[in-house]
């Protein structure tokens, strides 16, 4: 089952007396249940707007948004969601324990379970020592931890996170990554927007790159990277390796010879087949054949640069 489905979403802001501003222009994507989906995009691409649509904070001009098959406007869809906004705000007059208790009650958690579940969540995000401190005294990182704790109240099947690791120190980021992976092991679906590409590379099963209100690239991390092979490097060894490599110079990006080794770099994948075939009747041995792919960051910058 798909956790999230967005079909041909159009959304525009219409400030009074000002020109209409199109934010989403035919956005479509789907997030499989039990997966981690990374939503990448530059500032203003429409990431937060998309997340607001998922939470029914705003309504699309056209298109449909479903959460586990239910229309996002359906109140029952909210039961599946745990949401952590970017820079979450809290009631300054409450401490973390009071705040989590308040949200637990809204979520409909059984009164008898609230105390233990709140304690568990505080421990999970490392705030057990600050549970009775007013939230107004929290640092940004502590606020982020509390933001995650409230998103996990009621054991939601889908956790939507907007820039979850933006204000965290390296220890906090590591802790969040571990929590996300644990949630995935528990079968939860995670959808998060971010600028931080290493987080996406570490965590995500699938990535969508949003640009100008549309998904311009989407796929599993492996597929995205594999589809962007920069060059293939082949290392040959043997007394005739240099002469063998020279035969392909015209088709190669470069040929380097070092003693009995020859390094061939080429872009055409078919050339690899030809080299392997020619090696069959030769004394030259192939010691390495490796595809050098672009990193996700390269792909992202390439897509962003082409906007």
């Amino acid at each position: 089952m798909t956790a999230i489905t967005c079909k041909d979403i159009h959304f525009s802001y219409k400030p009074a007396f000002l020109k209409r501003y199109d934010v989403l222009k035919g956005l479509s994507f789907a997030v499989a249940e039990g997966s981690i989906y990374g939503f990448l995009g530059i500032n203003g691409a429409g990431k937060t707007t998309t997340i607001k649509l998922l939470n029914n904070f705003i309504k699309p001009d056209t298109g449909t948004v479903t959460i586990f098959g239910l229309d996002a406007r359906d109140i029952r869809a909210r039961s599946f969601i745990g949401y952590m906004p970017e820079n979450p705000g809290f009631y300054a007059y409450l401490n973390a324990r009071e705040f989590l208790t308040f949200i637990s009650r809204l979520k409909g958690t059984d009164r008898a379970e609230i105390k233990s579940s709140v304690d568990d969540l505080l421990r999970l995000v490392g705030l057990e020592g600050h549970a009775d401190m007013p939230v107004s005294r929290y640092s940004k990182g502590m606020g982020q931890r509390l933001g995650l704790a409230q998103a996990l109240i009621g054991n939601p099947a889908l956790v939507i996170l907007d820039e979850p690791m933006a204000n965290l120190d390296p220890i906090g980021r590591r802790a969040f990554r571990d929590i996300f992976l644990t949630l995935k092991e528990q079968g939860k679906t995670l959808f998060f927007s971010t600028h931080i590409i290493p987080d996406v590379e570490t965590l995500c099963d699938k990535v969508g790159i949003l640009m100008n209100g549309m998904i311009v690239k989407e796929g599993s991390l492996d597929d995205l990277i594999a589809s962007h092979i920069e060059y293939i490097e082949c290392i040959l060894r043997g007394r005739e390796a240099a002469a063998f490599a020279e035969r392909y110079r015209s088709q190669a990006l470069g040929v380097t010879v070092q003693a009995d080794n020859a390094i061939l770099r080429f872009a055409d994948e078919k050339l690899a087949d030809a080299i392997v075939r020619d090696l069959a009747g030769s004394t030259v041995r192939m010691v390495s054949l490796e595809a050098h792919t672009q990193s996700l960051e390269d792909i992202f910058l390439h897509v962003a640069g082409g906007r």
Binding site: N55, R78, Y83, G89, I103, L106, G108
Partner: peptide, 15 residues
């Protein structure tokens, strides 16, 4: 609305 605490409430099953 200014503190965005409303987002934490309306993302729950609250009409």
């Amino acid at each position: 609305l200014d503190l965005k605490t409303i987002q934490l409430i309306l993302s729950r099953p609250v009409r």
